[in-house]
Write a protein that binds this DNA or RNA. Structure first.
Lengths: 340, 340
DNA sequence: CTGTTAGCGCCTTCAA
DNA sequence: TTGAAGGCGCTAACAG
């Protein structure tokens, strides 16, 4: 029972064939005559043989393992993307190695190193902003990788993602279209986070194009957290002239903002409009339902997996895929009320 | 630039030492004389050497890799536990292999097999209910593993978790204490899910001990989803005699239930009380804030990691750790109002 | 402390 | 189609 784990050689002996045949059976069964195949199958079952991945990896130089290095799992939208990514990998018999770096790009490199040592065959990255060291590592190993959650228009970086700037701009433009002028922005911490940075830029662009400006007191950076969203809204509401609309960097912040309004009795969207970003499942059920941008996280994860899988099997596939991020106009936005 | 990845042998040559010394430097640096150490360090830096995990694993029989097989990442509470688990592993230089089986125990075995092939040194499991095949595999490999999210009082299974039955019972008892009798239960799908099963049992026990019964029409099983929670509450509210309190199997269901009440104008807790399970971050910010059971997911993940790490380094450590799941009485519960 | 060397378990030519 | 045999890159005795 507690004997050593059986090896391929044990299986070969048990089945009365060579190790090469067993190996072939494992990797290209169709090259093995049915009769032998059965004997091998029987031997494997009898011994409870499980292939030894490390040995296989060493000999074949592939681990059938793919890494993902993400900012955090604590944001439901990433969790969903990773979930889909893993699911797709699994159906091709690949296993996911996961690491999260908590938005610290130096830490990210360390994780990448760890994954490279583990021999991942490919890598998923979030965002297009990474340290040069990280790219050096990847290039030296000639490792296939893909950027997600962002889109590089230059085409220099392989990605399956979306244009954060454009998406944010869309939300801002919409608010301007329906008459808002006093628009505030509560965005995630932009340092080391190109998604947040781009979203902020998008809002700024939209405002500027319409001759509006983003007042310094209407610009807040907050960690992605409900409490932070509340605190941001509190800061905005207690100003002499509160904004009539608040664009939030993601749904978690927006949720916090909305809850803060509700707990202070500030009517939404009557007194103030709110937009989010991500379209978390719960946002459509809120009262009022949240106007937000739909991020196709599941599809992104799946397609990122497909891209990497394709690269690994030399199947041609475009190096970048841009996904649509649609604006979902729901209940938290309305034209500004005339005040004073 | 695009030359083959350098091997330990290359490093040895470059540094003018033996491969053994380089290997020692990598694994037990203190056994290498400082002078040599520097030469090796220089060589490693010069070549951009990255150890080859598979080779290392093959030779040492350890991968410094630990697997986690979870139901889904789509539930924030699991995401948080995994996050903490991974974080703790990383600080000991272990990497996480992650797989999710979507509550399908047969699929779970397949994932476990995949992880075993990848050579994980240890494994984290969710819940105490698994197929016999799964345990066979684990035992044959003599692999350290730990159960989480549940607690096995028999002591037969190593776990770092909590007593789902007791926790649910606590919520039910509380509702009874404050006067509820018409209590409904909206629990997760119990098939293949011992946490959900135990929670349901806990509620039943509490009711029975107080001479109350769980009416069939007050018992609903729903997938963990906001929409399902809403639908459950809808079903309950439209009955001839709606319950005065609804115990939900987790916070997502509870959130759905709460939102459904709000959208129908049913006052909570005035007309109906609601309890959740998990204590997701957002629940404390809801209006009213959700009465729920606090599941210490982060701590559980961290301690599960510590348990496995300890087992791998032969550090003594108790095989089971029971965590406290406290009832947080907040705004969604109150004594029943006298009706009719 | 350091070098030598025999594997670790499997894949993959190369012949048969 | 099948078997024999040489590595893959590293670790871990063992000897020095």
């Amino acid at each position: 029972m507690t004997a050593k784990a059986p090896t391929l050689e044990d299986v070969a002996r048990e089945a009365g064939v060579s190790t090469a045949s067993v190996s072939r059976y494992l990797n290209m069964p169709e090259l093995v005559r049915p009769q032998r195949r059965e004997k091998i199958e029987a031997a494997i079952a009898a011994l409870g043989y499980v292939p030894h991945g490390a040995a296989r990896a060493l000999a074949s130089q592939r681990t059938r393992t793919i890494g993902a290095v993400i900012p955090t799992l604590d944001n439901a939208i990433f969790a969903r993307g990773v979930q889909a990514f893993q699911h797709r990998l699994h159906s091709d018999n690949f296993t996911l190695l996961l690491a999260s770096f908590d938005y610290d790009l130096e830490e990210e490199v360390r994780h990448v190193d760890a994954l490279l040592t583990r021999g991942v065959d490919a890598l998923l990255l979030v965002g297009c902003l990474h340290t040069p060291k990280l790219y050096e590592r990847l290039d030296k190993m000639e490792l296939p990788y893909v950027h997600t959650w962002a889109f590089d228009r230059s085409g220099a970086k392989p990605c399956v993602g979306f244009d954060n700037r454009l998406a944010a701009k869309r939300a801002a433009s919409y608010l301007i279209d329906i008459g808002h002028q006093a628009i505030a922005l509560v965005v995630g911490i932009t340092e080391g986070n190109d998604r947040a940075t781009e979203r902020a830029l998008g809002v700024r662009e939209a405002l500027e194009e319409r001759g509006l400006a983003l007042l310094p007191e209407y610009y807040l950076e907050k960690a992605y957290d409900v409490a932070e969203g509340r605190s941001a809204m509190r800061q905005l509401l207690t100003q002499d002239v509160p904004p009539t609309a608040v664009i939030c960097g993601n749904d978690v912040l927006a949720l916090g903002a909305l809850l803060e309004c509700q707990s202070r009795g500030v009517p939404v969207p009557g007194e103030i409009s709110i937009t989010g970003f991500d379209d978390l499942p719960l946002t459509s059920h809120l009262q009022p339902s949240l106007t937000t941008l739909h991020v196709p996280a599941g599809e992104m994860g799946r397609r990122a997996a497909e891209y990497l899988l394709a690269r690994l099997s030399d199947v041609p596939m475009p190096d970048s895929t841009e996904l649509e991020v649609g604006l979902l106009v729901r209940g938290t936005t309305a034209p500004p009320s005339r005040r004073k």
